[in-house]
Structure formats: structure tokens, C-alpha cells
Design a protein around this nucleic acid. Structure first.
Lengths: 169, 169
DNA sequence: GTTTTAAGTCAGCCTTGTTGACATTCCAAC
DNA sequence: GTTGGAATGTCAACAAGGCTGACTTAAAAC
């Protein structure tokens, strides 16, 4: 199959598409994702929170006032699953849920000061690792990293990803 | 913190290390990993297997005859957790567990023809996405992708990653 | 006034991770 | 030879975090 891919392009330098290269890419994703989540996981362990809480805090921080439904689409989980996480965060005073003004069915989500503090603690740890990796690899490598990751996303997820960036500019 | 990083290098072009760039990297990892696992997950769903079974099949395929303990180190889970997965795979005739010759305490793991077939089906799907992403991004981007991921791994995981590559050459 | 939508809730299930306790088997050192 | 430790397996219990399905409430939309 890899050979077929190479042949199809008539001898171009497509050796980076061999099955062995792809396998290495797959394994790199596996091991790197472990590192990617290791630091926040360590912090959360013992706080009776998990990765799911971290994700919720991250995206509420990035898009304050987002609705539950919007968060659902970003995270790609069921509302029951998200609700369990969100309820504990609201009960513990890390997230505030305000009834919408225009549409009173909607709840808009915000981080409280305490929520902001935890979010910062978690993302500081995660960013520190990311910064070290970026610095070590250099700007061109980072550009390539981003390019490959974007190409790997499902189209829906890619749209979500771009929308988040737009809302911050 | 990002500003400090930039200043520390005395005005060099370190804008790729700003908090905003790092945040985008974090989100890219999140969304891309979803895509990365989506295809195998779809296949496994309905086979009464999960991602854990896929991981076991992958690494047994890559290192036939590996011991349970070795697999434990690669996967980073407890033996009880792995054992549950391994037991179902052995019961279903996808994995064979042979008592070691030199050390009869050890069990060496191999894929049966049926196991090989499922592994191929899963990794074909995953490689197809990876190949599309690699081709779309180009060889330089792929090199950068790999460089950043390697820098993101924990040192232990990075060692495991390199060892797997050595054993295949 | 009916239907649709956003959100929340309850109950139950599955996968996959965890810990702790314990048995077995075998190698290796003494 | 006996003992200590290592590798494996097994049982039980538990938790996080996914899922589905059914149902309520409130508000918006038609």
C-alpha cells in the first residue's frame, strides 16, 4: 500500500509516506499525547477532578459566556456527560452559569475568580511543556506541527478549531 | 510569562512562543487527537472492543514475542488493566500467549492470523488518515511535526519510542 | 396554541483506569 | 536445598467519564 502510494506519484520523493513512516507518526502521537496531558493530570489528581473538568475550564476560559450547547459541540460529548462535570464545577464555585438575557433558555458560562485561578494553574503547566517543546524544535518545526495536526482533524473539528481562534482576535 | 520569554532572548523572533501560540498548539493537539482515534474507534465499536484493545494489538504487532511486562511499560497502565484486555483477546483467539523458554514465568505475546487481520484493518484506517494529513502538509511539515512531538514526550516515553524504531530496523 | 429547542435530571450501562490482597511459578543467591 | 524476589495471574472493589433512553421545565418560534 505504501509502495503503491509512492509509485502513483511516479518516483517523486514520497518516502515520508511509507507505512513505516506513518507508523512512527502514529506512535509519536500516542506517546506525545501522554506527555501533553501528564502535567495537568498530576495537578488534578487529588482535587477530585479529572481531565474532563480541565477541558471544560479551558474552553470556558477561552470563550467566556459560551452556552452549554456550544461547549457540547466543541467537546464532542453528550450533555449528560458534560452536565455531570459542569454541575460539580458550579457547586464548587469555579464556574458561574447565568441565564441568557436575549434567550432565557440558554445558560452562559463564566469562570469565577477561583475557576480562573485553577485554569491558570493547569494551563501554565501545560503551556510550560508546550513552550519547552516548541523552543527545542524551533519555529519551522512548530509551523509543520500545526499544519499536520490541522490536516488530521475531522472537518467539523477543524471548523471549531478555527472559530476559537477567530473569537480571540 | 510569554512576554518574559520573548524579552529574555533580547528581541529575537520568538513570537511563536507567545501564550496565544501555545494555546493554539494545545487546542490543535486536542482536536487532532480526536481525529487520530476516530477511525479505529468507529471500527471497534460494535466489536465489543475498545481503544485499549487496539493499543495492545498495535504494539504486539510491532514487537512480536514481547513480554507482558514490556507491554506494560510501553502502554503505561497497570497489569490488572492490561490483563483484562489481554485475556479477552486471548479468549477470542486474536492473541497467543506462549510461556517463555528461557524464563518460564514470562509470557510472550503474538498475534494469531485473526489478530493480525484485525490489527491490519485498524491500522489501515489510521494510516489512511495519517497519510492524507502527511501528504497534504508536505515532507518539511511532517519533519517538524515529528520533532515537536518528540520534544513533548516524557523522557521515559521518548526512550520507549526510540526503542520501538530500533527494533524494526 | 402547538411545536421545537435549550437545558437539566434520573437511572443504568460500558470501558478502562485505579488499589489492595493473594496464589503461583520459577530463577538465583546463599 | 532453602529462601527471597521477580513475573505473572486472579479476585474484588471502586472511580472517572463516556454512553443511551426517558422525562421535565421553560422559553422561543411558528
Amino acid at each position: 500500500m505504501a509502495e503503491a502510494g509512492v509509485q502513483a506519484q511516479g518516483g517523486e520523493a514520497l518516502l515520508y509516506l511509507t507505512d513505516e513512516q506513518l507508523r512512527q507518526g502514529i506512535e509519536a502521537m500516542f506517546f506525545a499525547y501522554r506527555g501533553f496531558t501528564a502535567d495537568p493530570d498530576r495537578i488534578l489528581q487529588g482535587l477530585s477532578y479529572g481531565r474532563a473538568h480541565h477541558r471544560a475550564l479551558h474552553f470556558i476560559h477561552c470563550a467566556p459566556g459560551t452556552t452549554v450547547n456550544n461547549l457540547l459541540n466543541i467537546l464532542g460529548v453528550t450533555k449528560q456527560s458534560l452536565n455531570r462535570v459542569l454541575r460539580t464545577l458550579v457547586e464548587d464555585g469555579l464556574v458561574e452559569s447565568r441565564v441568557g438575557r436575549a434567550d432565557k433558555r440558554e445558560r452562559h458560562l463564566f469562570l469565577t475568580p477561583a475557576g480562573d485561578q485553577l485554569e491558570r494553574q493547569l494551563s501554565d503547566a501545560q503551556r510550560a511543556r508546550m513552550r519547552a517543546a516548541f523552543r527545542q524544535a524551533g519555529p519551522e518545526a512548530v509551523a509543520g506541527f500545526r499544519r499536520v495536526l490541522e490536516a488530521m482533524m475531522d472537518p467539523d473539528m477543524h471548523r471549531q478549531y478555527l472559530r476559537l481562534r477567530e473569537n480571540r482576535t
